[in-house]
Design a protein around this nucleic acid. Structure first.
Lengths: 374, 374
DNA sequence: CTGAAAGCGCTTACAG
DNA sequence: CTGAAAGCGCTTACAG
């Protein structure tokens, strides 16, 4: 069955490519300069031209100079697809991430890169880890290192635990890109993901503006000692202090990324007397619990809630106006850019312009959230 | 000079690709099924296999069936890069747009698509039009239609005026994608850009939330009779009426996309007695004028201003907290997706899943605007 | 209707 | 150090 569908695809989809007559007016066949032209012009062999072009050994300085001058003169540039075809080279990238809905977008982004040639010159192999299980991650990473792989993208649950393995990979000249969460101490080529401090600041800016600069805000963070949550917290607090000095930040609670705990915290806080105008969550796991508590005390909609990520429940709560805003991290780009950076490094040795690529900080409100998740 | 730099690039950048030994453990050379394998298995020629695969004429039904069964059996898929190499085919896309800063991002996005193979299988030619000059646009489009081009991306300043030319192109089987602004009556393959009604709604949602649901809002629209501005206006008004019924919308003024006019309107409105809590602009040309007026009457920061696009002045005014929010339209995606859609249609005959691809509606505030424009 | 052969632009053993 | 030749996987005249 699968085969039939595939065949159908093959036949219908490639037909346009080759149906066109070779000299169709629509096909521009600009005469492109090739190695052959250079060889002919200099009366040498094509192999020698190739050797000169690529700094291979077994060529005299004189010939090399000659070739290079000619190249400048007539403007040659190598044909990439011919190179790929003749070397039979395929770039193999391994991606190691959890399998949440969030990661579906990351995956979409990764496969969007060079999608038309996936299989021809690029293979992406995806390895799904148990959520927040660094030991499992390490095991997978070790397994991959024994295989043939040219580059690795990983979202390290525990940077310290994985640092050595990442360095191992890099030292055997397998580039590693961290995505979504970083391992800054490691020798990774690049980090692609959110700037969590800035993300905290933007949450703070939203809260300040939604409260018109005054009120009481409670913070529920996932884990007080996990770096990303620490940063999202500190960015928020910073923004409040220099942007909205009249907003009072109360206690900082910890929900351990659990919706149930978030519910218990929110219910207690909302019932203890002081009026709560805003609740800030450093995570996407918690809004459901907070919403439940707000509904119970009749404050749904009037207390502003700001959280992270665009999970399905969050989207629903945004539309019901129980959550005021959610902060996104552009997971599509995280996938797309990770693969792009790896590919360019593997093929060209080209390093990214910076060792951190911060993705867009998306703001999801009721009316635009659909445009952000599709 | 240019030549020297180029040569340097060439040599340093391609060296990694070919330095690796052919049988390096890092290079996975999975045995891939080729036409040759099928030919051998069936004891027929490779040419016949090709003919069967692509529904070419001059092949018997029986052989075709035989080949297809074999293909299913051993799982063949065509090698794209070999196809491109042998046909010498290059996809030529023409892009016709203005040259604003906004369009720089569009350009970046367009060239990001298949960037590693640009020149090998894809050429993008850019034609810059005078801003808002449909006659100039038409002239360029006509010129392009006389050249060899496989697909066109255009931002039609005047949809009615260009409709016939677009239809001409499509009828001679040159697909056209409209980007940023649509020509809905035409036979364009797809529109890539903002959903302006939704964009107006999100502006409304922000205004409502920033004002906590009450106050007086004035609207300055660019042109009352230009479709995109009409939509941005009507989305805003709709959102106000069902989301924030206590906010009063006053007069709707027209600034003809001029900053100076916006200044005059704002100054007059701010001085006429009624307290103005918010100003909504359906354009990115105007905020500077509004900001000037607000400063003059000492209301900068307290009156909320929401506008469109992330122009440099707008970014600056966001950081100075004179503009509260700006709405973006993801110009990078507009470029990227336009070229991607054209390429896939040209090469595979694959149509996009819908004839409108709405880009993300970005919300730019003070703290995240840098992450959105870089 | 089918096959044999040339060729796309490049790389790479092999021989000298 | 250099050249001649084979071959990557495919398409396409040409001949039969």
């Amino acid at each position: 069955m699968h085969g039939i569908i595939y065949l159908f695809f093959l036949v219908t989809c490639t037909s346009t490519l080759i149906k066109r007559p070779r000299n169709s007016s629509l096909v521009l066949r600009k005469r492109i300069v090739t190695q052959k032209d250079i060889a002919k012009a200099l009366n040498i062999s094509r192999g020698t031209v190739d050797r000169a072009l690529h700094n291979r050994k077994g060529i005299s300085k004189a010939t090399k100079a000659l070739v290079r001058r000619k190249v400048e003169e007539i403007g040659y540039s190598p044909n990439r697809i011919a190179q790929f075809l003749v070397t039979g080279r395929k770039v193999n990238v391994a991606m190691i991430t959890p399998g949440d809905p969030l990661w579906e977008m990351v995956r979409k982004g990764a496969h969007s890169y060079l999608s038309e040639l996936e299989g021809s010159i690029l293979n992406i192999n995806w390895y799904e880890t148990n959520v927040h299980d660094p030991v499992h991650e390490a095991k997978i990473l070790k397994k991959i290192l024994r295989k043939n792989v040219d580059g690795i993208g990983i979202a390290p649950a525990d940077p310290d635990l994985l640092c050595d393995l990442i360095d191992n990979a890099v030292e055997t000249s397998i580039p590693v890109v961290t995505l979504n969460t970083d391992a800054p101490q490691s020798k990774r080529l690049c980090y692609v993901g959110q700037d969590p401090i800035l993300a905290g600041k933007i949450a703070g800016e939203l809260m300040g503006k939604f409260l018109m600069g005054s009120g009481n805000v409670v913070i529920i963070t996932a884990f007080k000692n996990v770096l990303i949550h620490k940063h999202r917290l500190s960015g928020f607090v910073q923004k409040m202090s220099y942007g909205f000095p009249k907003i009072r930040i109360g206690e900082v609670y910890e929900n351990h990324d659990s919706s149930e705990e978030a519910y218990l915290i929110a219910r207690q806080v909302l019932q203890n007397g002081t009026k709560i105008d805003g609740i800030y969550l450093t995570t996407g796991n918690g809004p459901v619990g907070v919403a439940k508590a707000l509904r119970e005390v009749g404050k749904a909609g009037s207390t502003k809630v700001i959280c992270f990520d665009f999970f399905n429940e969050t989207v629903r709560l945004l539309k019901e106006e129980i959550i005021s805003a959610a902060i996104g991290e552009d997971p599509f780009s995280q996938g797309y850019q990770s693969v792009k950076i790896l590919f360019n490094y593997i093929v060209d040795g080209k390093k990214p312009s910076s060792n951190s690529l911060y993705t867009k900080i998306d703001i999801g409100l009721r009316e635009n959230i659909d445009s952000l998740v599709s």
